[in-house]
Amino acid sequence: MSDRFLLCALVAALLATPAWADTAPKGERAGTFKQVEGSVTATLGSETRKVRSGDAVFPNDRIQTAADGAAALTLRDGTELVLGPQAQLQVAGFEFEPTTQSGSLLLSLLHGSLRMVSGLIAKLQPEKAQVKTPTLVIGLRGTDFIVEAP
């Protein structure tokens, strides 16, 4: 192979790898964006990425929807989350061990609306699942609920 071909292949590989990939925890995918409408971004560390359906959700992601945006995501324990327009949610903590079905979940709704259907963590270990807002903390007990933060 020519040096020029190798250089082109290297440049293409570098361009195909998003800048945030190095900051994402390896093998620590918290879940998946199942449906994304409008403008939705996720920030991990100092890197912000535009998300699409099928993209990964990572622990510590800060997910933000624009006025025209909404997102539905599923975490690895089966927790389902739906964010409305102009919402901001921090996946502040997520750990899940599928073989023992144990883990912990901490979500921080900074702004906007969130619908949540609890997964295994909240159903089996309710004391280890919480949603915080600027004004309250919700302990989960295997429920389906909607919460809104100013």
Rank of each mutant, 00 (worst) to 15 (best):
D3Q: 13
L6I: 08
L15D: 10
A16Y: 07
T17A: 14
P18W: 09
A21Y: 14
D22W: 13
A24R: 08
P25T: 08
P25W: 05
K26W: 13
G27L: 14
R29G: 05
A30Y: 07
F33G: 05
K34M: 11
Q35T: 13
Q35M: 10
E37N: 13
E37I: 02
S39F: 06
S39G: 12
T41F: 09
L44Y: 10
L44P: 07
L44F: 15
G45Y: 09
G45V: 10
S46I: 13
E47D: 15
V51F: 09
V51N: 08
V51Q: 03
D55I: 09
D55R: 08
A56Q: 13
V57E: 00
F58D: 10
I63D: 03
D68T: 10
G69W: 03
A70P: 00
A70Y: 00
A70H: 09
A70K: 14
A71Q: 00
A72E: 14
T74R: 13
R76L: 15
R76E: 14
D77V: 05
G78Q: 11
T79K: 03
E80Y: 06
E80I: 12
L83C: 05
G84V: 04
P85W: 01
Q86S: 15
Q88H: 00
L89F: 02
A92E: 13
E95R: 11
E97M: 08
T100Y: 01
T100A: 12
S102I: 07
G103I: 01
S104K: 09
S104T: 02
L106P: 00
L106T: 02
L109Q: 00
H111Y: 01
M116Y: 04
G119M: 06
A122N: 09
L124D: 06
E127W: 08
A129F: 10
A129M: 06
A129D: 09
Q130I: 08
K132A: 14
T135E: 13
L136E: 15
L136D: 14
L136W: 06
V137H: 00
I138D: 02
T143Q: 14
D144M: 07
F145W: 06
A149W: 03
P150W: 04
